[in-house]
Design a protein around this nucleic acid. Structure first.
Lengths: 343, 343
DNA sequence: TTCTCTACTGTGAACGCTCACAGAAGCATG
DNA sequence: CATGCTTCTGTGAGCGTTCACAGTAGAGAA
């Protein structure tokens, strides 16, 4: 029993072993592995059988060394705060991207660039070619990292429209403006006229676009724009609470509220409740995101669903296309109004 | 201006370029890169300067090819449902692991094994040596994947004690039993005697251990065990709601409730509210996890904090130790009672 | 001197794969 | 019969690194 290795891994089979087993050359095995062009059916079959018998798995390091590709992509989070991890959207996005990539047998490397030191380290890592491309998720755009990476020629797809970038960066986003328009139209259709809004930060696309949609629809409906009805939030629950409190102070006869995120809407509900307003009787409240929390508020939140599953799938598709040599592209996906008890 | 490449990446410098620049050989550069033993101070300095000047970054593929290590680890999620992604603990864990690994310059590969096909694919990937070790997160333990990987000799650290594994698998866990004991003792100290509990699934360590702690403390306090006070939950909000409703049916004079997760506690609060019970006056409610949601319930939830930041740090530490050749280890970390308005 | 020991340095040979190229075989065309 | 074309196959080189080994120089001991 001296041969029993101590749970040790024995040396894995190489392409050479497969070639010998199949009675062909390395080259033929390699061709089978890479699409099977210019390979006879007989050889094809012999190689596949040999792969199965030996349990061969390609050594990606050896492959990457010569091809220069890594066959992996980075999922890069740039956020100074822990914001993302309390954002339910982020989860769905991460999960969706992981699975869309898994379908192509491409691993996802999770990177978090909070501090400047981390940003530098990660930039070096990425530009050294350790990933073929990057899925970039940063809420506050105008991110220096996006530019650095683009300038280094790294294929890049952002989630949400990067603002302040004159040049071409691929992105996939929900139609924020149109979603906001749908919600405000919905509130108007309920007969509400004193419609307030709590925006996202105005250096984020969601902040800007959703506010724009709000203004457009009100203008179309002939409702005069009233600056006192607009509060700027920060996508946090506390921000929503403060924003709603401020609005109620300034405009006591407020009869509807469009809040640019569900999390802020939760806070707004708290503030409305404390101020003795009934929802939706006194004030109708609409959120944005359709996060899981939207069903657990009291009352359940009418909101705008962002198609996160499609967003992640599109991000991966666009990134892989770009890695394959295609030009950057922008994809805008439609949103959907989900009506619940709060309106 | 014909030399201007079209945003193309030029060929990155190799160890050879650095050696030439520093006036030494490849070997010396390599030694500097790997700890700097047997290198003269002069050479050391020359090499570092050359690295800085050339912007050299080691090619990990070439290194991995020869060392057989990949210098990366997998973060493996095995869950048929989307459960994890609605679990706030998971976020903290993922973030913590990513950052603890980043400190060692080790990238984290996120893998999700939902279906059996994915499980097979991922097993092949891992056992082929594409990661040096695996951080395993699966709630329902007795996971076949854990055994497969252990048998393949892959360094492995689980989050939470894997049950049903007779053999040695490293794990890091909070002290579930002790946390439950603290909470039940707390409820007793408030004068409550009809203390119900909603457990986690009994095929999870959290389900089993927290129930055990509950029973132990009641026994110590001389409170007779009453089976009707125990409901089995599934860590979901709906499960908590159903569990609490059932308990109220069976034991109308219930005066306290220990719920094995905050998410279930949220559901329990809903059920209590609907049944007209005031919290904490009529029924004191204690949760478990100290998830972000715990502060946003009404009333805010007394709960047991799990030290997720330390858990992730320990998981990484134990995994790296194991990759370095050390034996598997188990780490149990203490919990902490966080008192809020619900008790 | 000569030998040994230590501290350091350079060199060739891998690691496992892909790619370019050369060549073979089969078949149609000139 | 030569020529070209297409389809298929094997071979050598090389990707950028580490590792084992050989070798050098200087110090101290015999």
């Amino acid at each position: 029993m001296t041969m029993q290795h101590t749970a040790g891994r024995r040396k894995p089979p190489t392409i050479h072993d497969v070639a010998r087993e199949a009675g062909v050359s390395r080259g033929t095995v390699s061709r089978v592995l890479n699409g099977g062009h210019y390979v006879s059916p007989a050889a094809q079959e012999a190689v596949n059988a040999a792969i199965r018998r030996t349990g061969y798995v390609v050594n990606r390091h050896a492959r990457s060394l010569i091809t220069g590709r890594s066959d992996s992509v980075g999922f890069l989070l740039t956020e100074p705060q822990e914001r993302f991890f309390e954002d339910p959207n982020f989860n769905v996005l991460l999960r969706g991207c992981t699975q869309a990539l898994a379908a192509h047998d491409i691993p996802l490397l999770l990177m978090i660039a909070g501090t400047e030191a981390e940003r530098r380290r990660i930039t070096r890592y990425i530009t050294a070619g350790h990933v073929d491309g990057v899925l970039l998720v940063s809420s506050h755009s105008g991110d220096p990292l996006a530019e650095r990476l683009r300038d280094a020629g790294v294929p890049l797809v952002a989630c949400g429209k990067p603002i302040g970038h004159t040049s071409k960066v691929s992105y996939v986003a929900a139609d924020d403006r149109d979603g906001a328009r749908d919600m405000v139209r919905h509130l108007l259709s309920l007969g509400r006229r004193r419609i307030g809004t709590i925006t996202g930060p105005l250096d984020t696309p969601g902040g800007v676009e959703r506010l724009a949609g709000y203004r457009e629809v009100l203008a179309e409906a002939g409702v005069p724009y009233d600056e006192r009805l607009v509060a700027t939030g920060d996508y946090s629950r506390a921000g929503g609470e403060a924003g709603a409190a401020g609005l109620l102070d300034r405009v006591p006869d407020l009869d509807a509220l469009f809040v640019a995120s569900d999390l802020m809407a939760q806070g707004a509900l708290t503030a409305l409740h404390r101020a003795g307003r009934r929802v939706p009787q006194d004030v109708a409240v609409g959120g944005f995101d359709d996060s899981p929390a939207a069903t657990s508020t009291d009352p359940a939140l009418t909101t705008i669903r962002q198609p996160w599953d499609r967003i992640s799938a599109e991000m991966v598709r666009v990134l892989l296309a770009q890695i394959g040599g295609e030009d950057p592209a922008a994809v805008i996906l439609p949103t959907e109004l989900v009506r619940r008890a709060s309106t």
